[in-house]
Amino acid sequence: MNDSIDTAAEPIVNVKHLAFSFGEGDLCKQILFDINFNVFPGEIVLLTGPSGSGKTTILTLVGGLRHVKTGELKVLGTDFRDASVMDLVRTRRQIGFIFQAHNLLDFLSARDNVAMAMQLHPEVTGTESRERVSELLEMVGLKDRMDYYPAKLSGGQRQRVAIARALVGRPQLVLADEPTAALDSHSGREVVELLQRLATDHGAAILMVTHDNRVLNVADRIIEMEDGRIKQPLNSP
């Protein structure tokens, strides 16, 4: 269990009566119904459930990639309900995103892919940003492959570059969508342990969608979804 969780603190993610639907009028299809949960600093929360249960939609909403229409959603102190596009973009810069597909830029080396994300943090000096990039790539075990292009890296290595890219801006919140789905059990385990270490070391909260039973034991809390509702907020195993 993670001792650094501070449930007395302000939650990093605060979801109240959140509902969401796609489409308009007759074609309107409701995806999420009355979702309520909080994520506190340093906490690892897993979202599980069958396909189509709305897990990824929650992730896109918390990530500020879709607009909230019904209910309340506060992320890192920003109320997403009446946030402007620019507010959403600014909040996204403080979130680390890890996608199922790594989506690295093929024309940039591992180092440059990570360094590019530092363009979003102009307040960090050039030297410091270079140090952080090397430090993170070392941490994800790619010390010897920093100048490799994605085409020359294995799937697990690419995913680790993507994780380094997500973490280089020192986010307070990491949103991960099945980060282990494309990996073998060994690499998958490594990636999850890396995320766990991050949560403890930097006090970042992690909200992760996963189907992978192998990683359930790292969670502080598991939220199980079914048909757009939270089935029952299980306490940690």
Binding site: L65, R90, R92, A101, L105, M116, L120, A166
Partner: peptide, 15 residues
């Protein structure tokens, strides 16, 4: 050919 990558850049906060 880089649309998914560009979409990713947008997601992580590039305008």
């Amino acid at each position: 050919t880089h649309l998914p990558q560009f979409a990713t850049l947008k997601a992580i906060g590039f305008t």
